Simulated scan of single mutants.
Amino acid sequence: MKYAEEYRDPEIARRLIAGIRQESRKRVRLMEVCGTHTMTIFRSGIRSVLPETIYLLSGPGCPVCVTDQSEIDAFIEIARTGGVTTATFGDLIRVPGTGSSLERERAAGADVRVVYSALDALAMARKHPDRRVVFLGVGFETTAPTIAAAVSAARDGGLSNFSVFSSHKRVMPALASLMEMDIRIDGFLLPGHVSLVIGAEAYRPLFDRHRCPMVIAGFEPGDVLAAIHRLVRQIESGRPDLENAYPRAVTAGGNRKAQALMASVFTPADAVWRGMGRIPESGLALRDGFEAFDARRIFGITLKDAPAPAGCLCGEVITGRSTPPECRLFRKACTPAHPVGPCMVSSEGTCAAYYRYHPETGDTGKDRS
């Protein structure tokens, strides 16, 4: 377990916590952008050991959670099409759309299958040439290269019954949009997985513009605590910086092969984010030349405005404007068994993390500063 056990060492954690407590004086709001960070923070009890000066916000780092209601409805429309096999990651299947879900459509007879990668869907298309297999491409720059590889393989192999509905999102435009919103963010814990692909220096233009402290973090408790410690030092010293606290995985330039593969198949496009609206060039669309594998074009799908479920605060939660306990549906109408919004469905969702790990004390978790 090299590069994992070392970052779970209780003694190292104690030293980091002591350093944070000793140095933190200003009241700050730090946002973890990645859903995996959110789960690590809750599962490890990191919030409970931080001083009262530090408040952690959960940001738009859960790919299923940021998928807009209009996109969920489009996925359901695809699933209802005759002769189509809809392939999807597991978390997406239970997200409620306006009037149904992929899970309900499957129960009603639609051919909806859970896969672990786009390559699984590609293999399915090869095995069943009589079926049109549509893979629902949801995720950030972390998963986009593997989906690009599947599209390239389908084109090179002359596979005509495979397509992708691209709902990918790009992290950088979303962070830039957050900085323009009326949300106080004093520092960012940047996502390790995305950073592995795009590289640490991809954040440089955003940092240079806003001078907001930023630290790329890994996913073990020691990683997160070390990143928080670095952010505290930057803030207390008045010297904001862009730091890479995950050098065992993230380089300055990122994974050039993955970037090239992604760019060969996808091009930046405007995208709609739950809770954030339309953000220019924050999505990925299939390039010209890949029309035969673009499910949006093949099935003539256009996104239709769709309001979020009544009373659901997922959009506010993923932008740090609300906490799950502030939602009147949380733990009542909305539970993991009967989710109303995607933040309760996804394994990286903030509502799911609060439900599983946050005690029912009546405390909303709202920042009082």
Rank of each mutant, 00 (worst) to 15 (best):
174 A>Q: 12
272 V>Y: 00
295 A>Y: 00
205 P>I: 13
256 R>D: 01
196 L>K: 12
303 L>W: 02
199 G>Y: 02
199 G>Q: 05
213 P>S: 07
227 A>P: 02
246 Y>V: 12
293 F>A: 07
210 H>G: 00
182 D>S: 14
281 E>A: 14
247 P>D: 04
286 L>H: 03
176 A>W: 04
246 Y>S: 09
243 E>V: 15
222 G>E: 07
206 L>W: 01
188 F>C: 06
228 I>L: 15
256 R>F: 01
186 D>G: 13
315 G>D: 06
290 F>M: 10
221 P>K: 14
251 T>C: 08
220 E>I: 09
176 A>K: 14
242 L>Q: 11
303 L>R: 14
275 G>K: 08
237 S>Q: 13
250 V>G: 04
305 D>E: 15
299 F>I: 11
190 L>I: 09
277 G>R: 14
302 T>I: 04
300 G>A: 08
198 I>F: 04
190 L>R: 13
283 G>W: 08
262 M>P: 00
264 S>V: 04
246 Y>T: 10
195 S>A: 15
296 R>G: 07
246 Y>Q: 12
248 R>C: 05
195 S>V: 10
261 L>Q: 14
259 Q>P: 00
266 F>E: 09
232 V>S: 06
173 P>S: 08
195 S>I: 12
286 L>G: 05
198 I>K: 10
283 G>Y: 03
242 L>H: 06
233 R>V: 11
292 A>V: 06
181 M>K: 14
221 P>G: 06
296 R>F: 01
290 F>N: 03
184 R>D: 06
317 V>W: 04
181 M>C: 05
247 P>M: 04
214 M>F: 02
313 L>S: 09
259 Q>H: 05
301 I>M: 03
222 G>K: 07
198 I>D: 01
210 H>L: 08
280 P>E: 10
255 N>H: 12
199 G>N: 09
279 I>E: 03
291 E>W: 02
225 L>Y: 02
313 L>T: 07
231 L>E: 08
233 R>S: 10
242 L>N: 09
231 L>G: 03
205 P>L: 01
177 S>F: 05
184 R>A: 06
260 A>C: 08
236 E>M: 12
272 V>E: 11
285 A>C: 05
243 E>H: 11
273 W>T: 11
297 R>E: 09
203 Y>S: 10
234 Q>K: 10
299 F>G: 05
213 P>I: 11
241 D>W: 04
